[in-house]
Protein backbone atom coordinates (compact mmCIF):
# COMPACT_ATOMS: atom_id res chain seq x y z
CA UNK A 1 0.00 0.00 0.00
CA UNK A 2 2.60 2.51 1.10
CA UNK A 3 4.52 1.96 -2.12
CA UNK A 4 1.66 3.41 -4.13
CA UNK A 5 1.23 6.47 -1.93
CA UNK A 6 3.15 9.41 -3.36
CA UNK A 7 4.50 10.51 0.01
CA UNK A 8 5.49 7.40 1.80
CA UNK A 9 8.17 4.94 0.85
CA UNK A 10 10.72 6.96 -1.09
CA UNK A 11 13.41 4.45 -1.93
CA UNK A 12 17.01 5.14 -0.90
CA UNK A 13 18.39 6.07 -4.33
CA UNK A 14 15.50 8.39 -5.08
CA UNK A 15 15.93 10.13 -1.76
CA UNK A 16 19.67 10.54 -2.38
CA UNK A 17 18.98 12.01 -5.80
CA UNK A 18 16.50 14.48 -4.36
CA UNK A 19 18.96 15.51 -1.67
CA UNK A 20 21.69 16.12 -4.23
CA UNK A 21 19.27 18.12 -6.34
CA UNK A 22 18.21 20.21 -3.37
CA UNK A 23 21.83 20.85 -2.45
CA UNK A 24 22.67 21.97 -5.97
CA UNK A 25 19.74 24.38 -5.93
CA UNK A 26 20.34 25.70 -2.42
CA UNK A 27 24.09 26.21 -2.43
CA UNK A 28 24.18 29.36 -4.58
CA UNK A 29 21.33 30.84 -2.56
CA UNK A 30 23.03 30.20 0.75
CA UNK A 31 26.28 31.50 -0.71
CA UNK A 32 24.54 34.68 -1.85
CA UNK A 33 22.99 35.13 1.56
CA UNK A 34 26.34 34.64 3.32
CA UNK A 35 28.17 37.06 1.03
CA UNK A 36 25.48 39.68 1.54
CA UNK A 37 26.09 39.85 5.27
CA UNK A 38 29.84 40.45 4.95
CA UNK A 39 31.45 43.82 4.53
CA UNK A 40 32.85 44.57 1.08
CA UNK A 41 36.28 45.06 2.54
CA UNK A 42 36.33 41.67 4.20
CA UNK A 43 35.51 39.98 0.91
CA UNK A 44 38.04 41.95 -1.10
CA UNK A 45 40.90 39.62 -0.32
CA UNK A 46 39.13 36.29 -0.22
CA UNK A 47 35.44 35.62 -0.75
CA UNK A 48 35.91 32.51 1.37
CA UNK A 49 35.74 34.83 4.35
CA UNK A 50 31.98 34.59 3.99
CA UNK A 51 32.15 31.26 5.77
CA UNK A 52 33.23 32.78 9.06
CA UNK A 53 32.09 35.70 11.24
CA UNK A 54 31.96 38.61 11.78
CA UNK A 55 28.66 39.16 9.95
CA UNK A 56 27.05 42.54 9.48
CA UNK A 57 23.85 44.07 8.08
CA UNK A 58 25.69 47.14 6.80
CA UNK A 59 25.04 46.29 3.16
CA UNK A 60 21.31 46.17 3.76
CA UNK A 61 21.44 49.43 5.67
CA UNK A 62 23.22 50.99 2.73
CA UNK A 63 20.51 49.80 0.36
CA UNK A 64 17.71 51.16 2.50
CA UNK A 65 19.55 54.41 3.03
CA UNK A 66 19.74 54.95 -0.70
CA UNK A 67 16.73 57.00 -1.72
CA UNK A 68 16.84 55.55 -5.21
CA UNK A 69 16.60 51.92 -4.12
CA UNK A 70 13.36 52.45 -2.28
CA UNK A 71 12.08 54.41 -5.25
CA UNK A 72 12.92 51.47 -7.52
CA UNK A 73 11.21 49.08 -5.15
CA UNK A 74 8.13 51.25 -5.27
CA UNK A 75 8.31 51.42 -9.07
CA UNK A 76 8.54 47.66 -9.32
CA UNK A 77 5.57 47.25 -7.02
CA UNK A 78 3.48 49.76 -8.96
CA UNK A 79 4.38 48.26 -12.32
CA UNK A 80 3.94 44.63 -11.25
CA UNK A 81 0.73 45.18 -9.33
CA UNK A 82 -0.62 47.44 -12.06
CA UNK A 83 0.19 44.90 -14.74
CA UNK A 84 -1.31 42.07 -12.69
CA UNK A 85 -4.51 43.95 -11.96
CA UNK A 86 -4.82 45.01 -15.59
CA UNK A 87 -4.22 41.51 -16.92
CA UNK A 88 -6.75 40.01 -14.51
CA UNK A 89 -9.45 42.51 -15.37
CA UNK A 90 -8.93 42.34 -19.12
CA UNK A 91 -8.52 38.56 -19.25
CA UNK A 92 -11.61 37.95 -17.14
CA UNK A 93 -13.78 40.23 -19.22
CA UNK A 94 -12.45 38.90 -22.51
CA UNK A 95 -12.60 35.31 -21.28
CA UNK A 96 -16.23 35.72 -20.25
CA UNK A 97 -17.06 37.29 -23.60
CA UNK A 98 -15.35 34.59 -25.64
CA UNK A 99 -16.81 31.80 -23.55
CA UNK A 100 -20.34 33.07 -23.07
CA UNK A 101 -21.43 35.91 -25.33
CA UNK A 102 -22.51 35.75 -28.93
CA UNK A 103 -21.04 38.49 -31.08
CA UNK A 104 -19.89 38.84 -34.66
CA UNK A 105 -16.45 37.42 -35.51
CA UNK A 106 -16.15 35.76 -32.14
CA UNK A 107 -14.28 32.76 -33.50
CA UNK A 108 -11.97 34.74 -35.73
CA UNK A 109 -11.18 37.14 -32.92
CA UNK A 110 -10.35 34.29 -30.63
CA UNK A 111 -8.02 32.82 -33.26
CA UNK A 112 -6.44 36.23 -33.53
CA UNK A 113 -5.83 36.22 -29.79
CA UNK A 114 -4.28 32.77 -30.03
CA UNK A 115 -1.94 34.02 -32.75
CA UNK A 116 -0.67 36.48 -30.19
CA UNK A 117 0.72 33.54 -28.23
CA UNK A 118 3.07 32.83 -31.10
CA UNK A 119 4.61 36.29 -31.38
CA UNK A 120 7.76 36.79 -29.29
CA UNK A 121 8.36 40.13 -27.62
CA UNK A 122 11.65 40.53 -29.47
CA UNK A 123 9.77 40.74 -32.75
CA UNK A 124 7.78 43.78 -31.75
CA UNK A 125 10.05 45.63 -29.39
CA UNK A 126 11.44 48.09 -31.90
CA UNK A 127 8.12 49.29 -33.30
CA UNK A 128 6.78 49.38 -29.78
CA UNK A 129 9.71 51.53 -28.70
CA UNK A 130 9.01 53.93 -31.54
CA UNK A 131 5.31 53.98 -30.84
CA UNK A 132 5.84 54.78 -27.18
CA UNK A 133 8.38 57.43 -28.10
CA UNK A 134 5.86 59.07 -30.42
CA UNK A 135 3.19 58.93 -27.77
CA UNK A 136 5.60 60.24 -25.19
CA UNK A 137 5.01 57.25 -22.94
CA UNK A 138 8.61 56.45 -22.09
CA UNK A 139 9.63 57.19 -18.54
CA UNK A 140 6.14 56.84 -17.17
CA UNK A 141 4.16 54.18 -15.35
CA UNK A 142 1.73 53.67 -18.22
CA UNK A 143 4.76 53.21 -20.46
CA UNK A 144 6.02 50.42 -18.22
CA UNK A 145 2.64 48.79 -17.59
CA UNK A 146 0.82 48.90 -20.94
CA UNK A 147 2.97 46.39 -22.87
CA UNK A 148 2.37 43.82 -20.13
CA UNK A 149 -1.37 44.03 -20.71
CA UNK A 150 -1.20 42.95 -24.31
CA UNK A 151 -0.34 39.31 -23.64
CA UNK A 152 -2.71 36.72 -25.08
CA UNK A 153 -2.12 34.03 -22.55
CA UNK A 154 -4.39 35.43 -19.87
CA UNK A 155 -7.30 35.78 -22.28
CA UNK A 156 -6.81 32.25 -23.55
CA UNK A 157 -6.46 30.89 -20.03
CA UNK A 158 -9.57 32.62 -18.68
CA UNK A 159 -11.62 31.70 -21.74
CA UNK A 160 -10.85 28.04 -21.15
CA UNK A 161 -11.71 28.40 -17.50
CA UNK A 162 -15.04 30.09 -18.14
CA UNK A 163 -15.87 27.44 -20.71
CA UNK A 164 -15.36 24.74 -18.11
CA UNK A 165 -18.09 26.20 -15.89
CA UNK A 166 -21.38 24.39 -16.57
CA UNK A 167 -23.88 26.45 -18.53
CA UNK A 168 -26.58 25.30 -16.17
CA UNK A 169 -25.38 27.97 -13.79
CA UNK A 170 -25.89 30.70 -16.36
CA UNK A 171 -29.36 29.42 -17.04
CA UNK A 172 -30.23 29.20 -13.36
CA UNK A 173 -29.06 32.79 -12.98
CA UNK A 174 -31.07 33.89 -16.00
CA UNK A 175 -34.17 32.35 -14.47
CA UNK A 176 -33.26 34.10 -11.25
CA UNK A 177 -33.57 37.34 -13.16
CA UNK A 178 -29.86 38.15 -13.18
CA UNK A 179 -28.58 40.64 -15.74
CA UNK A 180 -25.49 39.78 -17.74
CA UNK A 181 -23.35 41.90 -15.49
CA UNK A 182 -24.80 40.26 -12.41
CA UNK A 183 -24.24 36.82 -13.92
CA UNK A 184 -20.62 37.71 -14.58
CA UNK A 185 -19.94 39.42 -11.31
CA UNK A 186 -21.93 37.38 -8.78
CA UNK A 187 -22.09 33.93 -10.29
CA UNK A 188 -19.23 33.22 -12.69
CA UNK A 189 -16.40 35.45 -11.53
CA UNK A 190 -16.32 34.05 -7.97
CA UNK A 191 -15.94 30.59 -9.46
CA UNK A 192 -12.81 31.63 -11.34
CA UNK A 193 -10.90 32.67 -8.23
CA UNK A 194 -8.48 29.73 -8.43
CA UNK A 195 -7.70 30.72 -12.01
CA UNK A 196 -7.34 34.37 -11.06
CA UNK A 197 -4.84 33.41 -8.37
CA UNK A 198 -2.76 31.31 -10.74
CA UNK A 199 -2.80 33.86 -13.53
CA UNK A 200 -2.15 36.67 -11.06
CA UNK A 201 0.89 35.01 -9.51
CA UNK A 202 2.49 34.26 -12.84
CA UNK A 203 1.80 37.70 -14.22
CA UNK A 204 3.22 39.31 -11.10
CA UNK A 205 6.39 37.23 -11.19
CA UNK A 206 6.96 37.78 -14.89
CA UNK A 207 6.43 41.49 -14.51
CA UNK A 208 8.67 41.72 -11.45
CA UNK A 209 11.49 39.89 -13.19
CA UNK A 210 11.11 41.71 -16.48
CA UNK A 211 14.33 43.43 -17.41
CA UNK A 212 14.34 44.16 -21.09
CA UNK A 213 11.40 46.50 -21.58
CA UNK A 214 12.03 48.66 -18.48
CA UNK A 215 15.68 48.85 -19.55
CA UNK A 216 14.56 50.27 -22.90
CA UNK A 217 11.66 52.40 -21.76
CA UNK A 218 12.89 53.87 -18.48
CA UNK A 219 15.92 56.00 -19.18
CA UNK A 220 15.82 58.23 -16.11
CA UNK A 221 16.66 56.54 -12.85
CA UNK A 222 13.41 57.80 -11.31
CA UNK A 223 11.49 55.29 -13.42
CA UNK A 224 13.87 52.37 -13.11
CA UNK A 225 12.32 49.22 -11.78
CA UNK A 226 14.27 47.28 -9.20
CA UNK A 227 15.85 44.95 -11.73
CA UNK A 228 17.09 47.75 -13.95
CA UNK A 229 18.06 49.93 -11.04
CA UNK A 230 20.13 47.30 -9.30
CA UNK A 231 21.92 46.44 -12.50
CA UNK A 232 22.69 50.09 -13.14
CA UNK A 233 24.12 50.45 -9.67
CA UNK A 234 26.78 47.86 -10.33
CA UNK A 235 30.12 49.52 -10.85
CA UNK A 236 32.62 47.96 -13.15
CA UNK A 237 34.47 46.52 -10.25
CA UNK A 238 31.41 45.45 -8.29
CA UNK A 239 32.40 41.83 -8.60
CA UNK A 240 35.54 42.49 -6.64
CA UNK A 241 35.25 45.62 -4.61
CA UNK A 242 31.52 45.63 -3.81
CA UNK A 243 30.67 41.96 -3.62
CA UNK A 244 28.81 42.07 -0.31
CA UNK A 245 26.69 45.02 -1.40
CA UNK A 246 25.94 43.37 -4.73
CA UNK A 247 24.72 40.22 -3.07
CA UNK A 248 22.62 42.18 -0.61
CA UNK A 249 20.93 43.84 -3.58
CA UNK A 250 20.19 40.46 -5.11
CA UNK A 251 18.65 39.18 -1.89
CA UNK A 252 16.71 42.40 -1.49
CA UNK A 253 15.24 42.11 -4.99
CA UNK A 254 14.11 38.56 -4.49
CA UNK A 255 12.35 39.02 -1.16
CA UNK A 256 9.01 40.12 -2.68
CA UNK A 257 9.12 37.13 -5.01
CA UNK A 258 9.83 34.87 -2.10
CA UNK A 259 6.80 36.25 -0.31
CA UNK A 260 4.61 35.71 -3.37
CA UNK A 261 5.85 32.14 -3.68
CA UNK A 262 5.19 31.36 -0.06
CA UNK A 263 1.73 32.91 -0.01
CA UNK A 264 0.61 31.38 -3.29
CA UNK A 265 2.42 28.02 -3.07
CA UNK A 266 -0.75 26.08 -3.66
CA UNK A 267 -1.72 27.91 -6.85
CA UNK A 268 1.79 27.67 -8.25
CA UNK A 269 2.09 23.97 -7.65
CA UNK A 270 -1.35 23.38 -9.09
CA UNK A 271 -0.56 25.43 -12.17
CA UNK A 272 2.72 23.59 -12.64
CA UNK A 273 0.92 20.27 -12.36
CA UNK A 274 -1.44 21.49 -15.08
CA UNK A 275 -4.58 20.99 -13.06
CA UNK A 276 -5.52 24.61 -12.61
CA UNK A 277 -8.57 24.15 -14.78
CA UNK A 278 -10.60 21.54 -12.98
Amino acid sequence: MSATSPRAGLSGPVLALLLVGAAVMLTPMVWTLLLSVKSNAALLGDSGAALSPPYTLDNYRAILADRLTSRWLLNSLIVSLGTTAGVLVLSSLAGFAFARLEFPFRRSLFLFVLLGLAIPEQAVILPRHQLFATLGLHNSYPGLILPGLTGSFGVFFMTQYFRAIPRDLDEAALLDGASRLRLFWSVLLPLTIPAQATLGVFTFLASWNDYWWPLISATTSDYYTLTVGLASAQMNYAQTSGLGFLMAQAVFASVPILIVYIVFQKQIVRAMAGTAVR
Binding site: P166, D168, L169, E171, A172, A173, L174, L175, D176, G177, A178, S186, V187, P190, L191
Partner: peptide, 27 residues
Protein backbone atom coordinates in the same frame (compact mmCIF):
# COMPACT_ATOMS: atom_id res chain seq x y z
CA UNK B 1 -36.58 34.07 -18.46
CA UNK B 2 -36.47 36.03 -15.23
CA UNK B 3 -39.65 37.94 -16.02
CA UNK B 4 -41.85 35.01 -16.95
CA UNK B 5 -43.01 33.94 -13.52
CA UNK B 6 -41.58 30.46 -13.93
CA UNK B 7 -39.05 28.66 -11.76
CA UNK B 8 -37.00 25.70 -12.84
CA UNK B 9 -35.35 22.82 -11.04
CA UNK B 10 -32.44 21.55 -13.09
CA UNK B 11 -31.49 17.94 -13.53
CA UNK B 12 -28.04 18.57 -12.06
CA UNK B 13 -29.49 21.13 -9.65
CA UNK B 14 -27.28 23.99 -10.91
CA UNK B 15 -26.84 25.41 -7.43
CA UNK B 16 -24.34 28.25 -7.20
CA UNK B 17 -21.36 26.44 -5.66
CA UNK B 18 -19.82 29.46 -3.96
CA UNK B 19 -23.01 30.57 -2.23
CA UNK B 20 -24.53 29.12 0.90
CA UNK B 21 -27.93 27.51 0.71
CA UNK B 22 -29.46 30.70 2.04
CA UNK B 23 -27.69 32.82 -0.58
CA UNK B 24 -28.71 30.40 -3.30
CA UNK B 25 -32.33 30.86 -2.36
CA UNK B 26 -32.02 34.60 -1.88
CA UNK B 27 -30.27 35.33 -5.17
Amino acid sequence: PGDRGVAMVFQHYALYPHMTVRENMAF
